[in-house]
Design a protein around this nucleic acid. Structure first.
Lengths: 148, 148
DNA sequence: CCGAGATGCATGCAATTGCAAGGATAGGGT
DNA sequence: ACCCTATCCTTGCAATTGCATGCATCTCGG
């Protein structure tokens, strides 16, 4: 039944949302100041760049980057317009697009990483001991299970 | 096997962003399904409702809810249009607005809370022991200090 | 083969957000 | 008083997002 969450749950919730939003804003700001596009672009590019073939169906990327279907579709429009990815019809499934990262796409992802990594270190890493970071990751990992 | 000193930081970063976005989406979905407006509305209303006078300068609310100034401004437009808050010129400072929560605003906030609390419990509280939630809040709290 | 339903993607429209700019007031130094 | 700067709020415009819908294709059962 509608349970009354104990204070520690509500406290953790508030900290989680506030901290993530603050840190994300700071990291995004660092990226923007360095002249890079939003982190979503990185998220898509890195998924493709990780694949040996540089290719994934759009639906697979969508499931990994936590974007609504129509939002990924339009993000891919932008990436394609900038020459960072291509869309190819899938030979296996006539409904599906294959996203293919281009050389420029790989290059941009590679160039973004040092700035991104530095921002993570500045805004997160420098505040926690490695064991604390691991513990944080462990606790967060407990939250994303099944039906939640 | 950490390959770089900051591997645990990157891992924590990814978990932080992914978990927060997933959980926030789930909680927002519960709220929407119950017919309630977005959580931002709650955030503003609760700040005002907490005040004995039901009143705060717009700039103070802004600093608490982590919205860009122009976004809070337009959110207040919507709240005002729905009769949940009023805007009054500040007697102390000619530049400043005082936001005043209305009875309907208080009522909506009160009605939203049980659904919100249940969602927090479902999506966060039920996955953590109270001590784990406290530890999570503590670690997150370490991340929001000064200039970071 | 046919039809019903599911899946993958795209798009029109409305709402929201980001950005840049502007108007009004406040505060401090001279 | 005056200027200079900072703060508080608003707004026009462009970009992005949410939502509902549409279209083509696939899958499954008859």
């Amino acid at each position: 039944m509608p349970m009354k969450p104990n204070d520690s749950s509500v406290d953790a919730w508030v900290c989680l949302v506030r901290t993530e939003q603050r840190l994300l804003a700071r990291v995004e700001e660092d990226m923007k100041r360095a002249g890079f596009p939003p982190l979503e672009w990185y998220d898509v590019l890195v998924e493709l760049d990780r694949e040996p073939t540089g290719t994934l169906p759009q639906a697979v990327v969508q499931s990994r980057v936590l974007l609504a279907q129509y939002n990924l579709c339009r993000l891919c429009d932008r990436l394609q317009r900038e020459g960072l990815v291509l869309r190819q019809p899938s030979p296996d499934d006539g409904r599906s697009n294959l996203l293919v990262i281009t050389d420029n796409g790989r290059k941009l992802r590679r160039e973004m990483w040092p700035t991104y990594a530095a921002a993570i270190e500045t805004h997160l890493g420098s505040h926690l001991q490695p064991e604390e970071a691991s513990e944080l990751a462990r606790l967060l990992g407990k939250l994303v299970g099944g039906a939640g």
